[in-house]
């Protein structure tokens, strides 16, 4: 145990560099997946058949490709097509696109859960589609969407470790590098696991809070 704490004190600063990148990848891809997911969901419920079909196809396409393949494609294939991305950019883009499909289905479920009478009431006072969405549907859908959104945040935090496969030196990769040079696998990966857990627990509590609040309504 004593050895663990000594190693922890030694490796902690290096691993914290990884934590910083993990947070950047998670927040970046969360924002991107939210924006994209909202676009897919809006297209899906727009009532315009072509847009709904395009959105459904995109969602299925994205869901059908493993995140790691998407990351490889963006980082290794795109330069062949003349688009070179840094590892961090590719990681944020890849995870953002991959998770946008799940976000979209989450948002769509939230939007479709809103009582039809709400939309009719909005229409009956002259609101158009966008105003109805903005003022009536989305504010109510947010409450429904928040608990699963929190779960997506936790999954993204953990899946940000996949960025290590394209050389983003986030927490998992930093741990692997330290372990391979010191052979202290147990201590290093226990520390890495504890650091992920420390970041996840506040999010888990946040989800529980959202669920309680949603349950009260």
């Amino acid at each position: 145990m004593k050895g663990f704490w000594r190693d922890a004190a030694e490796f902690f600063p290096i691993l914290m560099n990884g934590v910083a990148l993990t947070i950047i990848v998670t927040i970046g891809s969360l924002l991107l997946s939210t924006a994209l997911g909202l676009i897919w969901a809006m297209m899906r419920v727009s009532g315009i058949k072509a847009l709904a079909m395009l959105s459904a196809s995109m969602i299925n396409l994205i869901r059908g490709i493993p995140i790691i393949v998407l990351l490889f494609y963006l980082y290794f294939v795109m330069p062949d097509l003349g688009v070179t991305l840094s590892a961090l950019q590719a990681a944020i883009l890849g995870l953002g696109i991959a998770y946008s499909a799940y976000q979209a289905e989450n948002f769509r479920a939230g939007i479709e859960a809103i009582d039809k009478g709400q939309i009719e009431a909005a229409q009956s006072i002259g609101m158009g589609w966008w105003l109805t969405m903005r003022r009536v549907v989305l504010p109510q859908a947010v409450r429904i969407v928040l608990p699963p959104y929190g779960n997506v945040m936790i999954m993204m935090l953990k899946d940000s470790s996949q960025a290590s496969t394209i050389t983003v030196a986030e927490l998992a990769l930093q741990g692997k590098l330290i372990a391979s040079s010191t052979f202290k696998n147990t201590n290093v990966f226990t520390l890495v696991a504890l650091m992920y857990l420390t970041m996840s627990i506040p999010l888990i509590l946040l989800v529980r809070h959202f669920e309680k609040r949603a349950g009260k309504k």
Partner: peptide, 14 residues
């Protein structure tokens, strides 16, 4: 719709 308003059976308040 701005000239002819509607009141619903189930109120449909926001």
């Amino acid at each position: 719709r701005t000239q002819v308003s509607m009141v619903f059976q189930r109120f449909n308040l926001f």
